[in-house]
Computed example of a mutant assay.
Amino acid sequence: MRANREPVTAVETHSARPWISARFRAGSEPVLPPTDLELPTGQRTPAYRFFEALPAAISFTAVGLVLILPFVDAMLGAVYVLAIVGLMFVRAMLGAVDVARGFLRYRRSARVD
Rank of each mutant, 00 (worst) to 15 (best):
V90D: 06
E52H: 15
A56W: 07
D73L: 05
E52A: 13
A26P: 08
A16M: 10
L32F: 13
P34R: 08
A47F: 15
T13H: 08
L76R: 13
A62P: 00
V99Q: 10
D73A: 06
P55E: 04
R107P: 06
G64A: 03
G77M: 01
L104Y: 08
M1V: 13
T35I: 12
L37V: 02
R2A: 13
A83M: 06
L32K: 11
R25C: 09
A100T: 07
R2F: 10
D36E: 14
A78W: 04
V90K: 08
D113S: 14
A83W: 07
V81T: 14
L65H: 04
L104T: 14
G102Q: 02
P46Y: 00
R44L: 06
R101H: 09
P46T: 00
N4G: 12
G77W: 03
D36T: 06
V8K: 15
A56L: 13
G27F: 05
I68V: 05
G27V: 00
A96C: 09
R2E: 14
I68S: 03
G27K: 02
R101C: 11
I68G: 01
A78V: 07
L67F: 04
I58C: 07
P40I: 01
A56R: 09
A96W: 04
S59P: 05
V63S: 05
A100D: 08
R44M: 06
A78L: 07
D36R: 08
V79K: 02
A100N: 03
R44Y: 07
E6Q: 09
R49I: 07
E6P: 09
F24I: 04
L39K: 02
T61A: 02
V66Q: 00
P70S: 01
V99M: 14
A47Y: 14
T61F: 02
E6M: 07
I68K: 04
I20Y: 13
R2V: 13
E6K: 03
V97Q: 06
L94H: 10
P34Q: 08
Y48T: 14
P46D: 01
I58P: 02
A96G: 10
M88I: 12
G27W: 05
Q43I: 13
G64T: 00
R101Y: 11
G77S: 03
I84G: 03
R107M: 12
P55W: 04
W19M: 06
H14T: 10
V112R: 15
D73C: 04
L87N: 12
S28F: 11
M93H: 11
A74I: 08
E52L: 15
A96Q: 06
L82G: 07
V85C: 02
A26C: 10
V90G: 03
V79Y: 07
I68D: 00
T13P: 06
S59C: 12
R49D: 01
